[in-house]
Amino acid sequence: MIWQLDLMILTLVVVCALVTINIKDLLGASVVFGIYSFLMCLLWAEMGAVDVAFTEATVGAGVSTIFFISAILRTTRRSKD
C-alpha cells in the first residue's frame, strides 16, 4: 500500500471511466473499458488482494472485453451519445 502509486492509478481510473462513457465509437469504448479493468487489477494487486487481481486480469480485462467486442461486431458500432 503505497499512497503515491494509489493516487496515480485512481486518477487514471477516473479518466478511463470518463472516456469510456463519453466516446462515440462503441468499439473504442470497449477497448478503453479493457484498459480500465487492467488498471483496476493493478489497484487490487497494490492493495494486497492478489486473488481478486488475478481474477480481474483474466475475467475483466481478458474475456469480458472479448465478449463486448464480439457482440459489437455482430450488431453495430454506431452510437448517438
Partner: peptide, 21 residues
Amino acid sequence: SPGGGFQGGVILGAAFILLAL
C-alpha cells in the same frame, strides 16, 4: 499461490477462444 478454479477455468477457456479467433 494465487489462483484456483475460476481463474484456471477462464484461462483454459481463453485458449479455445484464442483458437476460434
